[in-house]
Computed example of a mutant assay.
Amino acid sequence: MEIIKGAGAWAPPSEAADWTEQLRTADLSVGTYCIPAGGTDDQSPHTEDEIYVVTAGRATIVTPDATAAVGPGSVIFVPAGEEHRFTDITEDLALLVVFGPAYGSRTP
């Protein structure tokens, strides 16, 4: 058992990173993705399945097939390869992110 400290907590993104990985195993990884209010989400589709849990903030998530408002408590599943982006970020957005398998592990 391990308590993952800081996972899902808001922290202002630095120039170096807006994503912090807090746990990594072969089968999954857990981290925090933060975007400030008015910020831009410039991520690309991932090669792993992904679950987002909104822990703070409000935004809209946009995929090719749907658009939805999200806020604290929202849980979003994004399958591997699906284009997705958070837009209209009206409050500092903190996301607990779970990748399965671990982030980047399917990248050639």
Rank of each mutant, 00 (worst) to 15 (best):
T40K: 15
G104N: 00
D65H: 08
P64R: 05
E15Q: 10
G38I: 02
S105T: 15
S14C: 01
D88I: 00
A11E: 09
E21L: 12
P101V: 04
L28C: 15
P79I: 12
G8Q: 05
L95D: 02
S29F: 13
E15L: 09
E82C: 09
R24E: 11
E50M: 10
L23W: 14
D92E: 00
P12C: 00
A66Q: 13
E50F: 04
E2T: 11
F99S: 02
H46L: 13
V78L: 15
T60F: 04
V62R: 11
P13Y: 06
E83K: 11
A94C: 08
G8I: 07
A16S: 14
E21C: 11
R24T: 13
L96A: 11
G81M: 07
H46T: 12
F99W: 11
F99G: 00
Q43S: 12
I3C: 03
E91A: 11
F99A: 01
V98H: 01
S74A: 14
V70A: 05
M1I: 08
G73Q: 08
T67W: 01
L23I: 10
G8R: 07
G39H: 01
T20W: 10
R85I: 05
D18M: 04
V62N: 05
G8V: 04
L28R: 06
A59R: 08
T87A: 09
G6D: 11
D18Q: 12
D92W: 01
K5L: 09
E91I: 00
G73H: 01
I51S: 02
E15M: 05
T47V: 08
E82M: 15
I51E: 12
S44A: 14
D27P: 00
A68S: 11
S14N: 03
D27N: 14
A26I: 07
T107N: 05
G8F: 10
S105W: 01
P36T: 06
G57R: 01
A94H: 02
L28Y: 15
Y103C: 04
S14Y: 01
I61V: 15
V78H: 02
F99Q: 03
W10Y: 10
T63K: 04
I76N: 09
A16Q: 13
S14F: 05
I51W: 14
D88C: 01
L23V: 12
T67Q: 15
P101Q: 02
I61K: 07
Y103H: 08
K5R: 15
K5I: 09
E83P: 08
G57F: 03
T47A: 15
P13V: 05
V98G: 00
T47P: 06
A37D: 02
V54R: 08
L28P: 04
G71Y: 00
T67D: 08
